[in-house]
Amino acid sequence: MSTLHTVNKSPFTNGSLLSCLKHCRPGDAILLIEDGVYGALKGSTVADAVCENLADVRLFLLGGDVRARGIEDEKILSQARTVEYDGYVDLVVEHDRTQSWL
């Protein structure tokens, strides 16, 4: 039993990503979409908080949103994996429920 968490807001203006990280359980996945993809920037003020919580939680990014925002691969945390919309669907199906951190 696991949960897919989605976060769609920048962590620099909104606490959703940090709150989400604190409520994840082992086996869960976080998918950053829309402005949420900024949460996977390397060297940012939230990067340590993100990485500390990824021991048992997988981190994904929605590729279209990453490219739209001009974020280059080398700027992204190495733990994050990029998926496209079909991968988003797979993540929803693989997990028992989806929780949107709006």
């Binding site: 604190k22 409520h23 989806t98 929780q99």
Partner: peptide, 18 residues
């Protein structure tokens, strides 16, 4: 507690967020 809240969230069939 926050940990209990995480457990409650993980025990659901449908999560509606507002």
């Amino acid at each position: 507690s926050r940990a209990e809240m995480a457990d409650i969230m993980a025990d659901q069939d449908v999560v509606l967020s507002f």
